[in-house]
């Protein structure tokens, strides 16, 4: 069985990717994932986005466990 991770995209990031939820092959760290996504979707370089690993916002490069849930979070604008 191949190791996978779940990706959830929100707001403008979801609009660029064209999908809200998808599964992809496991990638070892958040920096590597970001690099991969930017290659796949060059438009993403025009927007700011943070990442959450298993619902926790991360601020530095973080290891991604197999089966982790990753969220791609553009700047918040609630309230």
């Amino acid at each position: 069985m191949n190791a996978t991770i779940q990706i959830m995209a929100f707001g403008k990031v979801a609009e660029i990717i064209g999908s809200v939820n998808f599964t992809m092959q496991h990638i070892a760290s958040t920096n590597l994932l970001k690099e991969y996504l930017l290659q796949l979707f060059p438009e993403l370089s025009k927007v700011k986005f943070a990442m959450a690993v298993n619902k926790k916002l991360i601020t530095t490069d973080t290891a991604i466990d197999v089966s982790a849930n990753i969220a791609l979070l553009p700047p918040f604008s609630g309230g």
Binding site: F10, E15, F76, S77, G78, G79
Partner: peptide, 23 residues
């Protein structure tokens, strides 16, 4: 709430175009 909750507002204009709000 405005700074820390993962909530997004999509501003819809009268001509139905949109932009993503930033607080």
């Amino acid at each position: 709430i405005k700074n820390e909750l993962p909530v997004w507002g999509k501003e819809i204009f009268t001509d139905n175009t949109h932009q993503w709000k930033e607080n």
